[in-house]
Write a protein that binds this DNA or RNA. Structure first.
Lengths: 255, 255
DNA sequence: ATTTTTATGATTGATTTTGATTGAAAAGGA
DNA sequence: TCCTTTTCAATCAAAATCAATCATAAAAAT
């Protein structure tokens, strides 16, 4: 693990927990105490954290949390995408919603018709269960599995087993990258979840803003064959990739 | 556990229960009395708590508590029961925790040893995932299923299917009633979940304060045969029932 | 291929924090 | 009231943490 990977990891924990201790940083990065101390000093002088004895404290700043931050980025595009996706839904549909920022936006735009929503995202579940008070239009289901608190979602074998129990009309996925080679995401366990959602649904819809087009990530979810459509935003930087994907036979909606 | 982690833990308990004793703080943090006293002095001079003999009193400030914790405040009986239950747990144990207020208290007293906790309670999951600060001692698993937002828990066929995937050393249950006729609870779906937890664990432990003794509710969970022990509080009103249950062969711990 | 630069890990001594011990003060019971 | 028990604050030795330094390994430049 190198310099910036360590910083990223440590800042992630610091943002989540408020602080990170030297010992904990050594555990998660595998680096020596001396190195961690230098990292702490760097991050502190960059103003990202505040040095305290035994570790560092995350600087409390608005939009500092990773999730909130990413949610703010491209949020106009994400909202447009989410609205377009929500338009697909009809009375009584059963929907898988993958954990992610774009899919979270989808939940903000869900139509007020009876829906069954199955998600592995704790944030989405919490939001929907809360937003759902009045007319009980939505039934919200959570998959089981191990809680990954830093990402706010469930993943792993328990999650896959849980998904086996369900079949949906739609699967809405947010991915790390999409191109002619297929769909990609960053985490092994998350990729497995998404694969299962695709397999267990009639139609899979990928939600991805233009920054994801043509990108790859560590893990491949699968090819484009089982994907019903891609919903993305209509940005100049993405148009080439959109054409390529359309030529490949994928239905692309650019909003 | 270092300086700020101790403070965080202690303030959490102080906010929840109103006070925290020196002894209890020593148990939670593993630090010596001298250190805890210094911590108390610091927190007091920072205005976070008020010093009282034998411990500190939390400064009452509304709205600084998560919803899940507010409901669980101030119940000596439940806390004593929870502490007794927590004492059963050993390094590496796998534990089912049923959703309920008494079982929520159990989670406040979990020992700082590696545990795997499987719960159908969203509140417990949220609390544990958040409280799991320093050493990642606990892996928290959630069952799947339909969200019952008003109770903050998951239930139904999806939950049962999810539970099929797991087997635990312990199941901790909070029930609506317990008597010679067996265990009772109010909701059909919850009862099914509890039945499954009993079936899928080596030992089932019932947590119930004296008000539940001899009571019944709409749904019967099952007989006492599969129950390893009952932990209850030692109130005069409950002693008759305790004797009856003991005569029936049930191990009863009254604290 | 060799040198230079950079990043890392180990070592050192100074500093801070912690844990045990002590005697004094406070609380509780006979 | 007196005595016992518990709690408290102060003190000191031990342990943990820190910043600085040095040596080594990897990466980059020559």
């Amino acid at each position: 693990m190198n310099h910036w990977e360590r910083h990223e990891q440590m800042l992630r924990v610091a943002a989540l927990k408020g602080t990170i201790s030297l010992r904990r940083a050594m555990e998660i990065t595998g680096a020596s105490a001396a190195t961690i101390r230098r990292d702490f000093a760097e991050m502190a002088s960059a103003g990202a954290v505040e040095r305290i004895r035994g570790g560092v404290r995350g600087v409390r700043r608005e939009g500092n949390l990773p999730f909130a931050m990413r949610q703010a980025q491209h949020s106009d595009a994400k909202n447009a995408i989410a609205r377009e996706a929500a338009d697909l839904l009809r009375h009584g549909d059963v929907v898988f919603v993958d954990g992610g920022t774009t899919t979270f936006h989808l939940c903000l735009h869900l139509p007020a018709v009876p829906l069954r929503i199955i998600t592995n995202s704790l944030r989405i579940a919490a939001y929907l269960a809360d937003a759902n008070t009045a007319d009980n239009a939505w039934e919200v289901y959570l998959t089981g599995g191990l809680i990954h608190a830093e990402f706010g979602l469930l993943a792993g074998p328990g999650t896959l087993h849980s998904l086996d129990f369900y079949h949906a009309d739609w699967a809405f996925l947010s991915v790390g990258g999409i191109g002619v080679a297929g769909l990609y995401n960053t985490s092994e366990t998350v990729v497995e979840t998404e694969r299962k959602m695709i397999a267990q649904s009639d139609r899979a819809v990928v939600l991805a803003d233009h920054s994801k087009l043509g990108q790859r990530a560590m893990c491949r979810i699968g090819g484009l064959g089982r994907i019903d459509r891609l919903i993305t935003d209509d940005a100049p930087q993405g148009r080439d990739q959109v054409r390529v994907l359309q030529k490949e036979g994928l239905k692309v909606v650019a909003v």
